[in-house]
Design a protein around this nucleic acid. Structure first.
Lengths: 174, 174
DNA sequence: CTCTCCTTCCTAGCGGTGCTAGAATCGGAT
DNA sequence: ATCCGATTCTAGCACCGCTAGGAAGGAGAG
C-alpha cells in the first residue's frame, strides 16, 4: 500500500502497474493477488488510508480556528490543501474506482468519518431551515469541484484563496 | 468521433478501444491514426463537440427564463442535466485527459465559449466588489462537484433539486 | 531420520491494450 | 502501359491486469 501510494504520488496512478509494484516490493506479481483481489482493491486501500488522514487534517484545522467563520475557512483551506498536496490519494478517494461504496449502508467507516469531520464544522453554519447534511453535501461538492478543476489546470491556481473567501462568505450563514 | 461518442455513452470510455472503434467504422486500426494522433485526441475531439453542445444548451435554458433568479437556477439545472444525460461527453470534457488546454492562451474556442455561456448569466449575480470571472469559476466548480459526485454515486441523486436551490439562493446576489 | 503435508512463492502464459513499421492495393496522370 | 501517390491492411511491439500450475522449504508424524 505504501509503495503504491508513493509511486502514484510521484508518477501518477498510470505508472502504478502490478508489475512495477511487484518489482518495488521485491516480490513477484501473484503475491499481490494473495493480499488484494486486484488493482482496484489496492486503490481502495489507499483511499481508506487517505480518508482517515484527511479526517484528521480537517479536524485539526477546524479546532485550531476561533469562531464559525474562521473555522469554516480553515476547513476549506485544509481540504484544498490536502487535495493539492496528495493528489494521488485524493484521486484514489474520489476520482478512481476503488470499489468503495459511498452514501450507502456499507460505506466503510473512514469515509463516513471524513464526511462527519466536514459535517461537524459545517452543520453550525447551515442556516435555519436547511438540513445540515444537505448543506454539507453542497459545500463539499463545491470544494471537490475547486480541488479537481484546479488540479486538472482547468482553473488558474493563483486565485484559490479568493475563491475560498467567496465560497465561505456566501454559502455559510454566520 | 460519432462512433466513439456513442460507444462511450453506451458502455463507458473503458469500452472505447482502438480495436473496437476500428471494427465499428469498418476500417482497420491504423486508419484511426491517420486522422487522430492517438486515443487522447479522439477524446479531445468528442470533448470539443460536447462543449459546443453544452454552450448551446446553457444559453437556451438561460434565455427561456425570466429574471436573474430563475435564469441562474435554469442554468444550473441545464448544466447538471447535461452532465447526467451525457456522462461520457462530460467525462471527455472534464474528467479524462483529452490533451486540451484550459484557462490558457491556446484554449480551444468551444471551451472558452462554454465558459462564456456560464459567465453571461452568472456575471449579473456576482454581487458588488466580486470579479465576475472569479464568481463564475466558483459557481462552475460547485456545479462540477455536484455533477461528478452525483454521477459517481458519492451523493444520493434524489436531492439534486434541493441542492440546486440552496446553491443558487446562497451564492447568487439577486 | 524420513516422509508427508501445507504454506509461500515463482515461472509462464492468457487475452487484452495503444500504437507503428512495412507491405499491398488501387486510381489518376503521363 | 507505366508510374506515382495516396490509402488501407497485416503483423507485430511492448505493455497491461490477472491466473494456472508447479517448485521450494519448513513443521509435524511415524
Amino acid at each position: 500500500m505504501a509503495t503504491a501510494r508513493e509511486l502514484a504520488e510521484r508518477q501518477g496512478w498510470d505508472a502504478v502497474t502490478t508489475r512495477r509494484l511487484a518489482e518495488r516490493i521485491e516480490y513477484s506479481q501473484p503475491v499481490l493477488y494473495s493480499h488484494f483481489r486486484g488493482k482496484r482493491e489496492i486503490i481502495g486501500a489507499v483511499a481508506l488510508d487517505g480518508a482517515a488522514e484527511m479526517a484528521a487534517a480537517l479536524r485539526a484545522a477546524a479546532s485550531a480556528a476561533d469562531g464559525p467563520r474562521a473555522r469554516v475557512a480553515a476547513l476549506a483551506r485544509a481540504y484544498l490543501d490536502f487535495a493539492a498536496r496528495s493528489p494521488a490519494v485524493y484521486d484514489a478517494m474520489f476520482q478512481l474506482d476503488g470499489g468503495l461504496a459511498f452514501a450507502e449502508a456499507d460505506t466503510p467507516e473512514p469515509l463516513k468519518d471524513a464526511f462527519a469531520a466536514l459535517s461537524e464544522s459545517l452543520g453550525e453554519v447551515a442556516g435555519e431551515g436547511v438540513h445540515p447534511g444537505l448543506f454539507t453535501e453542497v459545500f463539499w461538492a463545491a470544494l471537490h469541484g475547486l480541488a479537481t478543476l484546479t488540479r486538472a489546470r482547468r482553473l488558474p491556481p493563483e486565485d484559490t484563496e479568493r475563491r475560498i473567501e467567496l465560497l465561505v462568505d456566501r454559502l455559510a450563514v454566520l
